[in-house]
Design a protein around this nucleic acid. Structure first.
Lengths: 240, 240
DNA sequence: GTGACTGACGTCAAGAGC
DNA sequence: GCTCTTGACGTCAGTCAC
Protein backbone atom coordinates (compact mmCIF):
# COMPACT_ATOMS: atom_id res chain seq x y z
CA UNK A 1 0.00 0.00 0.00
CA UNK A 2 2.35 2.53 1.03
CA UNK A 3 4.40 1.82 -1.89
CA UNK A 4 1.70 2.46 -4.20
CA UNK A 5 0.93 5.65 -2.72
CA UNK A 6 4.50 6.44 -2.59
CA UNK A 7 4.73 6.93 -6.16
CA UNK A 8 2.04 9.29 -6.19
CA UNK A 9 3.29 10.85 -3.17
CA UNK A 10 6.48 11.83 -4.56
CA UNK A 11 5.53 12.82 -7.88
CA UNK A 12 7.91 15.43 -8.31
CA UNK A 13 6.48 17.09 -11.20
CA UNK A 14 3.07 16.41 -10.79
CA UNK A 15 -0.24 16.94 -11.58
CA UNK A 16 -3.27 18.20 -10.75
CA UNK A 17 -5.01 18.47 -13.74
CA UNK A 18 -8.18 17.54 -14.84
CA UNK A 19 -9.71 19.36 -12.25
CA UNK A 20 -11.56 22.23 -13.11
CA UNK A 21 -12.10 21.38 -16.52
CA UNK A 22 -13.59 18.32 -17.25
CA UNK A 23 -15.53 18.46 -14.23
CA UNK A 24 -18.73 17.15 -13.93
CA UNK A 25 -21.63 16.83 -15.89
CA UNK A 26 -24.49 14.92 -15.31
CA UNK A 27 -23.40 12.73 -12.66
CA UNK A 28 -21.82 15.24 -10.67
CA UNK A 29 -24.75 17.18 -10.63
CA UNK A 30 -26.68 14.32 -9.86
CA UNK A 31 -24.65 13.54 -7.11
CA UNK A 32 -24.62 16.79 -5.78
CA UNK A 33 -28.14 16.91 -5.85
CA UNK A 34 -28.47 13.83 -4.20
CA UNK A 35 -26.07 13.96 -1.57
CA UNK A 36 -25.55 17.09 -0.24
CA UNK A 37 -25.67 19.30 -2.47
CA UNK A 38 -28.68 19.44 -3.37
CA UNK A 39 -28.14 21.91 -1.37
CA UNK A 40 -26.71 24.19 -3.48
CA UNK A 41 -29.20 25.00 -5.45
CA UNK A 42 -30.68 26.38 -2.81
CA UNK A 43 -27.99 28.35 -2.16
CA UNK A 44 -28.26 30.10 -5.11
CA UNK A 45 -31.57 30.51 -4.93
CA UNK A 46 -31.28 31.96 -1.84
CA UNK A 47 -28.52 33.92 -2.65
CA UNK A 48 -29.97 35.74 -5.21
CA UNK A 49 -33.27 35.37 -5.09
CA UNK A 50 -32.86 34.99 -1.92
CA UNK A 51 -35.37 36.02 -0.07
CA UNK A 52 -38.00 33.89 -0.49
CA UNK A 53 -36.43 30.90 -1.06
CA UNK A 54 -34.28 31.20 1.67
CA UNK A 55 -36.71 31.70 4.08
CA UNK A 56 -38.43 28.96 2.97
CA UNK A 57 -35.98 26.58 4.03
CA UNK A 58 -35.91 27.97 7.24
CA UNK A 59 -39.35 27.95 7.57
CA UNK A 60 -39.43 24.63 6.50
CA UNK A 61 -37.36 23.60 9.17
CA UNK A 62 -38.91 25.52 11.62
CA UNK A 63 -42.21 24.86 10.65
CA UNK A 64 -42.91 22.81 7.85
CA UNK A 65 -46.32 23.74 7.38
CA UNK A 66 -45.75 27.19 6.82
CA UNK A 67 -43.75 27.00 3.96
CA UNK A 68 -46.26 26.53 1.59
CA UNK A 69 -46.26 29.88 0.48
CA UNK A 70 -42.95 30.58 -0.64
CA UNK A 71 -42.03 28.48 -3.23
CA UNK A 72 -43.28 29.24 -6.36
CA UNK A 73 -39.97 29.87 -7.49
CA UNK A 74 -39.43 26.79 -8.99
CA UNK A 75 -38.05 26.48 -12.25
CA UNK A 76 -37.15 29.95 -12.39
CA UNK A 77 -34.72 29.58 -9.80
CA UNK A 78 -33.12 26.83 -11.42
CA UNK A 79 -32.46 28.57 -14.44
CA UNK A 80 -31.58 31.48 -12.58
CA UNK A 81 -29.03 29.52 -11.20
CA UNK A 82 -26.22 31.07 -12.45
CA UNK A 83 -27.53 34.21 -12.07
CA UNK A 84 -25.15 35.17 -9.75
CA UNK A 85 -22.80 33.97 -11.93
CA UNK A 86 -20.05 34.52 -9.82
CA UNK A 87 -18.77 31.61 -11.17
CA UNK A 88 -20.87 29.67 -12.98
CA UNK A 89 -18.63 28.43 -15.28
CA UNK A 90 -19.14 25.04 -15.56
CA UNK A 91 -19.24 23.64 -12.65
CA UNK A 92 -19.98 23.67 -9.58
CA UNK A 93 -22.37 25.87 -8.75
CA UNK A 94 -21.86 25.95 -5.26
CA UNK A 95 -23.44 24.50 -2.70
CA UNK A 96 -24.92 25.79 -0.06
CA UNK A 97 -25.57 24.17 2.92
CA UNK A 98 -27.94 24.74 5.22
CA UNK A 99 -28.11 26.09 8.16
CA UNK A 100 -28.88 24.36 10.82
CA UNK A 101 -26.97 25.14 13.46
CA UNK A 102 -27.81 28.37 13.64
CA UNK A 103 -29.51 28.60 16.57
CA UNK A 104 -28.22 26.07 18.44
CA UNK A 105 -24.98 26.45 19.73
CA UNK A 106 -22.62 24.52 21.54
CA UNK A 107 -23.76 23.64 24.53
CA UNK A 108 -26.91 23.88 24.93
CA UNK A 109 -28.22 21.27 23.49
CA UNK A 110 -27.34 19.27 25.30
CA UNK A 111 -27.66 16.35 24.38
CA UNK A 112 -27.02 15.19 21.78
CA UNK A 113 -25.47 12.74 21.09
CA UNK A 114 -23.18 11.51 19.50
CA UNK A 115 -20.15 12.07 19.41
CA UNK A 116 -18.12 10.27 18.11
CA UNK A 117 -15.09 9.65 17.60
CA UNK A 118 -13.12 9.08 15.21
CA UNK A 119 -10.73 7.34 13.69
CA UNK A 120 -9.55 4.26 13.94
CA UNK A 121 -10.97 1.19 13.60
CA UNK A 122 -14.00 0.60 14.70
CA UNK A 123 -16.36 1.97 16.47
CA UNK A 124 -19.37 2.31 15.61
CA UNK A 125 -21.54 3.69 17.34
CA UNK A 126 -24.41 4.87 16.22
CA UNK A 127 -26.20 7.40 16.42
CA UNK A 128 -28.92 8.60 15.35
CA UNK A 129 -29.65 11.53 15.22
CA UNK A 130 -32.42 12.83 15.81
CA UNK A 131 -33.19 15.60 14.41
CA UNK A 132 -36.25 16.04 14.98
CA UNK A 133 -35.08 18.46 16.85
CA UNK A 134 -35.52 20.85 14.59
CA UNK A 135 -38.61 20.47 13.33
CA UNK A 136 -40.39 19.11 15.67
CA UNK A 137 -39.27 18.38 18.72
CA UNK A 138 -41.80 16.61 20.21
CA UNK A 139 -39.29 14.45 20.60
CA UNK A 140 -38.81 11.77 22.47
CA UNK A 141 -36.08 11.45 24.60
CA UNK A 142 -34.08 14.08 23.96
CA UNK A 143 -36.38 16.46 24.17
CA UNK A 144 -35.29 16.50 27.43
CA UNK A 145 -32.99 19.00 27.54
CA UNK A 146 -33.61 20.56 24.94
CA UNK A 147 -35.85 22.08 23.22
CA UNK A 148 -35.79 25.14 23.90
CA UNK A 149 -33.14 27.01 23.27
CA UNK A 150 -33.93 30.22 22.17
CA UNK A 151 -35.78 30.94 25.05
CA UNK A 152 -37.28 34.08 24.38
CA UNK A 153 -38.50 34.98 21.13
CA UNK A 154 -39.07 32.50 18.71
CA UNK A 155 -41.74 32.13 16.38
CA UNK A 156 -42.93 35.53 15.81
CA UNK A 157 -39.97 37.50 14.91
CA UNK A 158 -37.67 34.75 14.62
CA UNK A 159 -38.30 34.19 11.06
CA UNK A 160 -36.71 37.37 10.16
CA UNK A 161 -33.93 37.10 12.49
CA UNK A 162 -33.15 33.73 11.50
CA UNK A 163 -33.19 34.61 8.00
CA UNK A 164 -30.73 37.22 8.48
CA UNK A 165 -28.47 35.07 10.38
CA UNK A 166 -28.61 32.41 7.90
CA UNK A 167 -27.92 34.66 5.10
CA UNK A 168 -24.93 35.98 6.75
CA UNK A 169 -23.58 32.73 7.59
CA UNK A 170 -23.98 31.57 4.20
CA UNK A 171 -22.18 34.38 2.79
CA UNK A 172 -19.33 33.68 4.98
CA UNK A 173 -19.26 30.24 3.88
CA UNK A 174 -18.93 31.17 0.34
CA UNK A 175 -16.10 33.40 1.08
CA UNK A 176 -14.42 30.79 3.02
CA UNK A 177 -14.86 28.39 0.27
CA UNK A 178 -13.04 30.57 -2.07
CA UNK A 179 -10.42 31.23 0.43
CA UNK A 180 -9.88 27.60 0.95
CA UNK A 181 -9.42 27.12 -2.72
CA UNK A 182 -6.85 29.80 -2.80
CA UNK A 183 -5.10 28.36 0.13
CA UNK A 184 -5.03 24.99 -1.42
CA UNK A 185 -3.59 26.30 -4.59
CA UNK A 186 -0.99 28.14 -2.71
CA UNK A 187 0.01 25.19 -0.76
CA UNK A 188 0.25 23.10 -3.76
CA UNK A 189 2.44 25.60 -5.45
CA UNK A 190 4.56 25.66 -2.42
CA UNK A 191 5.01 21.98 -2.39
CA UNK A 192 5.83 21.91 -5.99
CA UNK A 193 8.33 24.57 -5.49
CA UNK A 194 9.92 22.60 -2.77
CA UNK A 195 10.24 19.67 -5.00
CA UNK A 196 11.85 21.71 -7.65
CA UNK A 197 14.14 23.30 -5.25
CA UNK A 198 15.23 20.01 -3.94
CA UNK A 199 16.03 18.67 -7.28
CA UNK A 200 17.84 21.77 -8.27
CA UNK A 201 19.84 21.78 -5.14
CA UNK A 202 20.68 18.21 -5.43
CA UNK A 203 21.96 18.75 -8.83
CA UNK A 204 23.94 21.73 -7.92
CA UNK A 205 25.31 19.98 -5.03
CA UNK A 206 26.56 17.22 -7.11
CA UNK A 207 28.14 19.61 -9.44
CA UNK A 208 29.91 21.39 -6.69
CA UNK A 209 31.14 18.26 -5.24
CA UNK A 210 32.53 17.15 -8.49
CA UNK A 211 34.07 20.42 -9.14
CA UNK A 212 35.66 20.36 -5.87
CA UNK A 213 37.13 17.06 -6.46
CA UNK A 214 38.47 18.15 -9.70
CA UNK A 215 39.98 21.16 -8.34
CA UNK A 216 41.69 19.23 -5.79
CA UNK A 217 43.14 17.00 -8.37
CA UNK A 218 44.57 19.65 -10.49
CA UNK A 219 44.87 22.79 -8.63
CA UNK A 220 46.21 24.93 -11.27
CA UNK A 221 43.61 24.62 -13.77
CA UNK A 222 40.90 27.02 -13.26
CA UNK A 223 37.53 25.92 -13.99
CA UNK A 224 37.21 25.60 -17.62
CA UNK A 225 33.84 26.83 -17.78
CA UNK A 226 31.85 26.65 -14.75
CA UNK A 227 29.16 28.65 -16.12
CA UNK A 228 29.70 29.58 -19.60
CA UNK A 229 26.52 31.18 -20.01
CA UNK A 230 27.16 33.54 -17.29
CA UNK A 231 29.98 34.82 -19.10
CA UNK A 232 28.48 36.78 -21.66
CA UNK A 233 29.49 39.96 -20.43
CA UNK A 234 29.06 43.17 -21.84
CA UNK A 235 27.86 43.26 -25.18
CA UNK A 236 27.86 46.73 -25.91
CA UNK A 237 29.23 48.31 -22.96
CA UNK A 238 27.14 50.67 -21.27
CA UNK A 239 28.85 53.76 -20.64
CA UNK A 240 28.68 54.68 -17.18
CA UNK B 1 -2.31 38.41 2.39
CA UNK B 2 0.18 36.33 0.82
CA UNK B 3 2.74 37.55 3.12
CA UNK B 4 0.91 36.55 6.08
CA UNK B 5 0.25 33.22 4.86
CA UNK B 6 3.72 32.97 3.72
CA UNK B 7 5.00 32.59 7.09
CA UNK B 8 2.79 29.86 7.82
CA UNK B 9 3.32 28.45 4.53
CA UNK B 10 6.91 27.97 4.95
CA UNK B 11 7.09 26.80 8.35
CA UNK B 12 9.94 24.65 8.05
CA UNK B 13 9.75 22.78 11.16
CA UNK B 14 6.30 22.83 11.93
CA UNK B 15 3.53 21.51 13.62
CA UNK B 16 0.68 19.58 13.44
CA UNK B 17 -0.15 18.49 16.60
CA UNK B 18 -3.09 18.06 18.54
CA UNK B 19 -4.61 15.96 16.12
CA UNK B 20 -5.88 12.70 16.88
CA UNK B 21 -6.18 13.11 20.36
CA UNK B 22 -8.14 15.82 21.40
CA UNK B 23 -10.59 15.14 18.84
CA UNK B 24 -13.92 16.08 19.14
CA UNK B 25 -16.87 14.72 20.45
CA UNK B 26 -19.77 16.64 20.86
CA UNK B 27 -19.21 19.15 18.36
CA UNK B 28 -18.38 16.86 15.71
CA UNK B 29 -21.41 15.21 16.09
CA UNK B 30 -23.24 18.18 16.32
CA UNK B 31 -21.93 19.41 13.29
CA UNK B 32 -22.56 16.48 11.38
CA UNK B 33 -25.88 16.35 12.54
CA UNK B 34 -26.53 19.68 11.64
CA UNK B 35 -24.95 19.93 8.46
CA UNK B 36 -25.45 16.98 6.81
CA UNK B 37 -28.26 15.94 8.18
CA UNK B 38 -29.88 18.77 7.94
CA UNK B 39 -28.77 19.06 4.74
CA UNK B 40 -30.10 16.17 3.67
CA UNK B 41 -33.08 17.08 4.97
CA UNK B 42 -33.23 20.00 3.18
CA UNK B 43 -31.98 18.56 0.46
CA UNK B 44 -35.03 17.30 0.00
CA UNK B 45 -36.73 20.20 0.68
CA UNK B 46 -35.05 22.23 -1.47
CA UNK B 47 -35.12 20.24 -4.21
CA UNK B 48 -38.38 21.05 -4.34
CA UNK B 49 -38.28 24.35 -4.09
CA UNK B 50 -35.65 24.70 -6.35
CA UNK B 51 -36.12 22.54 -8.93
CA UNK B 52 -38.99 22.27 -7.95
CA UNK B 53 -40.83 20.07 -8.87
CA UNK B 54 -38.83 17.74 -10.15
CA UNK B 55 -38.86 14.74 -8.51
CA UNK B 56 -37.86 15.70 -5.46
CA UNK B 57 -41.09 15.69 -4.27
CA UNK B 58 -41.33 12.33 -5.13
CA UNK B 59 -38.55 11.50 -3.18
CA UNK B 60 -39.94 13.10 -0.51
CA UNK B 61 -42.96 11.27 -0.70
CA UNK B 62 -41.45 8.14 -1.29
CA UNK B 63 -39.17 8.51 1.28
CA UNK B 64 -41.46 9.65 3.59
CA UNK B 65 -43.66 6.91 3.07
CA UNK B 66 -41.09 4.50 3.20
CA UNK B 67 -39.57 5.73 6.01
CA UNK B 68 -42.48 5.72 7.83
CA UNK B 69 -42.94 2.31 7.47
CA UNK B 70 -39.61 1.18 7.69
CA UNK B 71 -38.61 2.86 10.53
CA UNK B 72 -40.86 3.53 12.98
CA UNK B 73 -38.18 3.07 15.09
CA UNK B 74 -37.72 6.25 16.37
CA UNK B 75 -37.44 6.33 19.86
CA UNK B 76 -36.62 2.84 20.09
CA UNK B 77 -33.66 3.26 18.14
CA UNK B 78 -32.52 5.86 20.21
CA UNK B 79 -32.39 3.97 23.15
CA UNK B 80 -30.95 1.15 21.43
CA UNK B 81 -28.35 3.30 20.55
CA UNK B 82 -25.55 2.20 22.25
CA UNK B 83 -26.23 -1.12 21.98
CA UNK B 84 -23.18 -1.82 20.47
CA UNK B 85 -21.40 -0.21 22.92
CA UNK B 86 -18.23 -0.48 21.36
CA UNK B 87 -17.28 2.02 23.55
CA UNK B 88 -19.55 4.10 24.93
CA UNK B 89 -17.46 5.74 27.10
CA UNK B 90 -18.62 8.96 27.28
CA UNK B 91 -19.32 9.81 24.23
CA UNK B 92 -19.11 9.07 21.08
CA UNK B 93 -21.20 6.94 19.44
CA UNK B 94 -20.49 7.97 16.02
CA UNK B 95 -22.16 9.55 13.58
CA UNK B 96 -24.19 8.46 11.23
CA UNK B 97 -24.82 10.10 8.31
CA UNK B 98 -27.36 9.74 6.14
CA UNK B 99 -27.56 8.83 2.95
CA UNK B 100 -29.30 9.52 0.27
CA UNK B 101 -28.14 8.47 -2.78
CA UNK B 102 -28.20 5.02 -2.67
CA UNK B 103 -30.09 3.54 -5.18
CA UNK B 104 -30.58 6.03 -7.36
CA UNK B 105 -28.39 6.23 -9.97
CA UNK B 106 -28.54 8.06 -12.79
CA UNK B 107 -31.72 8.01 -13.68
CA UNK B 108 -34.28 6.97 -11.88
CA UNK B 109 -33.81 7.68 -8.67
CA UNK B 110 -35.69 6.55 -6.69
CA UNK B 111 -35.77 7.85 -3.79
CA UNK B 112 -34.79 6.93 -0.92
CA UNK B 113 -33.92 7.97 1.67
CA UNK B 114 -32.85 8.18 4.59
CA UNK B 115 -31.30 6.45 6.33
CA UNK B 116 -29.43 6.20 8.60
CA UNK B 117 -27.41 4.85 10.32
CA UNK B 118 -25.61 2.73 11.96
CA UNK B 119 -23.10 0.84 12.55
CA UNK B 120 -22.05 -2.18 13.04
CA UNK B 121 -23.57 -4.69 14.67
CA UNK B 122 -26.75 -4.48 14.34
CA UNK B 123 -28.37 -2.08 13.65
CA UNK B 124 -31.19 -1.95 14.36
CA UNK B 125 -32.01 -0.13 12.37
CA UNK B 126 -33.23 2.62 12.30
CA UNK B 127 -32.29 5.43 12.16
CA UNK B 128 -34.29 7.54 11.53
CA UNK B 129 -33.50 9.98 10.51
CA UNK B 130 -35.00 12.52 9.64
CA UNK B 131 -37.38 12.25 8.58
CA UNK B 132 -39.87 12.84 10.44
CA UNK B 133 -39.63 15.87 9.18
CA UNK B 134 -40.64 14.94 6.27
CA UNK B 135 -43.05 13.24 7.63
CA UNK B 136 -45.05 15.76 7.67
CA UNK B 137 -45.64 16.74 4.50
CA UNK B 138 -48.74 15.72 3.87
CA UNK B 139 -48.15 18.37 2.48
CA UNK B 140 -49.36 20.77 0.80
CA UNK B 141 -47.93 21.26 -2.25
CA UNK B 142 -46.22 18.45 -2.99
CA UNK B 143 -48.36 15.83 -2.81
CA UNK B 144 -48.58 16.11 -6.24
CA UNK B 145 -46.45 13.85 -7.70
CA UNK B 146 -46.29 11.11 -6.28
CA UNK B 147 -45.37 8.43 -5.10
CA UNK B 148 -44.25 5.84 -6.65
CA UNK B 149 -41.68 5.24 -8.78
CA UNK B 150 -39.81 2.36 -8.19
CA UNK B 151 -41.74 0.27 -10.18
CA UNK B 152 -41.06 -3.03 -9.03
CA UNK B 153 -40.77 -3.90 -5.61
CA UNK B 154 -40.85 -1.31 -3.24
CA UNK B 155 -42.35 -1.04 -0.10
CA UNK B 156 -42.17 -4.36 1.21
CA UNK B 157 -38.71 -5.29 0.63
CA UNK B 158 -37.25 -2.02 0.08
CA UNK B 159 -36.74 -1.33 3.62
CA UNK B 160 -34.43 -4.13 3.91
CA UNK B 161 -32.66 -3.46 0.80
CA UNK B 162 -32.16 0.04 1.57
CA UNK B 163 -30.89 -0.69 4.87
CA UNK B 164 -28.39 -3.01 3.55
CA UNK B 165 -27.18 -0.64 1.03
CA UNK B 166 -26.89 2.02 3.45
CA UNK B 167 -25.03 0.02 5.84
CA UNK B 168 -22.57 -0.91 3.30
CA UNK B 169 -22.05 2.48 2.17
CA UNK B 170 -21.51 3.64 5.56
CA UNK B 171 -18.94 1.15 6.23
CA UNK B 172 -17.13 2.21 3.22
CA UNK B 173 -17.25 5.67 4.32
CA UNK B 174 -15.64 4.89 7.55
CA UNK B 175 -12.91 3.08 5.91
CA UNK B 176 -12.36 5.83 3.56
CA UNK B 177 -12.25 8.24 6.36
CA UNK B 178 -9.46 6.41 7.93
CA UNK B 179 -7.68 6.08 4.72
CA UNK B 180 -7.92 9.74 4.13
CA UNK B 181 -6.43 10.43 7.46
CA UNK B 182 -3.55 8.21 6.69
CA UNK B 183 -3.04 9.77 3.40
CA UNK B 184 -3.06 13.16 4.88
CA UNK B 185 -0.52 12.25 7.45
CA UNK B 186 1.66 10.82 4.84
CA UNK B 187 1.49 13.81 2.74
CA UNK B 188 2.29 16.01 5.55
CA UNK B 189 5.29 13.98 6.41
CA UNK B 190 6.37 14.19 2.88
CA UNK B 191 6.16 17.91 2.81
CA UNK B 192 8.00 18.21 5.99
CA UNK B 193 10.66 16.03 4.71
CA UNK B 194 10.99 18.14 1.68
CA UNK B 195 11.47 21.15 3.79
CA UNK B 196 14.11 19.52 5.78
CA UNK B 197 15.83 18.28 2.77
CA UNK B 198 15.87 21.67 1.27
CA UNK B 199 17.36 23.24 4.24
CA UNK B 200 19.93 20.58 4.57
CA UNK B 201 20.87 20.84 0.98
CA UNK B 202 21.06 24.53 1.10
CA UNK B 203 23.37 24.36 3.95
CA UNK B 204 25.53 21.80 2.40
CA UNK B 205 25.58 23.70 -0.72
CA UNK B 206 26.82 26.74 0.95
CA UNK B 207 29.47 24.83 2.62
CA UNK B 208 30.65 23.33 -0.58
CA UNK B 209 30.69 26.61 -2.22
CA UNK B 210 32.75 28.11 0.45
CA UNK B 211 35.06 25.28 0.48
CA UNK B 212 35.51 25.57 -3.13
CA UNK B 213 36.33 29.15 -2.91
CA UNK B 214 38.81 28.53 -0.30
CA UNK B 215 40.44 25.87 -2.17
CA UNK B 216 40.75 28.07 -5.07
CA UNK B 217 42.49 30.63 -2.99
CA UNK B 218 45.00 28.36 -1.57
CA UNK B 219 45.29 25.38 -3.65
CA UNK B 220 47.69 23.49 -1.66
CA UNK B 221 45.90 23.41 1.52
CA UNK B 222 43.75 20.47 2.01
CA UNK B 223 40.57 20.96 3.65
CA UNK B 224 41.29 22.32 7.00
CA UNK B 225 38.22 21.44 8.62
CA UNK B 226 35.39 20.30 6.75
CA UNK B 227 33.40 20.16 9.78
CA UNK B 228 34.44 22.79 12.15
CA UNK B 229 31.90 22.22 14.65
CA UNK B 230 33.19 18.92 15.26
CA UNK B 231 36.29 20.36 16.40
CA UNK B 232 35.47 22.36 19.27
CA UNK B 233 38.77 23.49 20.07
CA UNK B 234 40.01 25.40 22.82
CA UNK B 235 38.17 28.17 24.05
CA UNK B 236 40.35 30.54 25.52
CA UNK B 237 42.99 31.01 23.20
CA UNK B 238 41.36 33.55 21.26
CA UNK B 239 43.75 36.19 21.32
CA UNK B 240 43.74 37.72 18.04
C1' DG C 1 -15.51 -6.31 -7.79
C1' DT C 2 -13.41 -5.10 -3.55
C1' DG C 3 -10.22 -2.46 -1.05
C1' DA C 4 -6.74 1.15 -0.46
C1' DC C 5 -4.95 5.56 -1.75
C1' DT C 6 -5.34 10.11 -3.21
C1' DG C 7 -6.69 14.56 -5.61
C1' DA C 8 -9.96 17.88 -4.89
C1' DC C 9 -13.55 20.23 -2.50
C1' DG C 10 -16.18 22.08 1.27
C1' DT C 11 -16.67 22.91 6.11
C1' DC C 12 -15.25 24.38 10.67
C1' DA C 13 -12.42 26.30 14.16
C1' DA C 14 -8.24 29.01 15.47
C1' DG C 15 -5.55 32.52 14.82
C1' DA C 16 -3.47 36.72 12.47
C1' DG C 17 -4.01 41.24 11.04
C1' DC C 18 -6.62 45.27 10.30
C1' DG D 1 -15.46 43.84 15.85
C1' DC D 2 -14.38 42.07 11.33
C1' DT D 3 -12.05 39.38 7.45
C1' DC D 4 -8.78 36.21 5.58
C1' DT D 5 -6.10 32.32 6.14
C1' DT D 6 -5.02 27.78 7.26
C1' DG D 7 -4.75 23.19 9.71
C1' DA D 8 -7.62 19.41 10.07
C1' DC D 9 -11.39 16.52 8.79
C1' DG D 10 -14.85 14.24 6.03
C1' DT D 11 -16.66 13.20 1.66
C1' DC D 12 -16.56 11.87 -3.22
C1' DA D 13 -14.70 10.23 -7.43
C1' DG D 14 -11.25 7.95 -9.75
C1' DT D 15 -7.32 4.88 -10.02
C1' DC D 16 -4.45 1.09 -9.26
C1' DA D 17 -3.69 -3.36 -7.43
C1' DC D 18 -5.14 -7.74 -5.72
Amino acid sequence: KAAASGSSLNPQGSLTLSRDLSRKTVDEVWKDMQLKKVTNRDKKIQERQATLGEMTLEDFLVKAGVVAEALPTKGGAMSGVDSNGAFSQHGHWLQYQQLSSSTQQPNVMGGYVAGHAIQQPFQVGVNLVLDAAYSEQPASLMGTLSDTQTPGRKRGASGVVVEKTVERRQKRMIKNRESAARSRARRQAYTQELEIKVSRLEEENERLRRLNEMERALPSVPPPEPKPKQQLRRTSSAIF
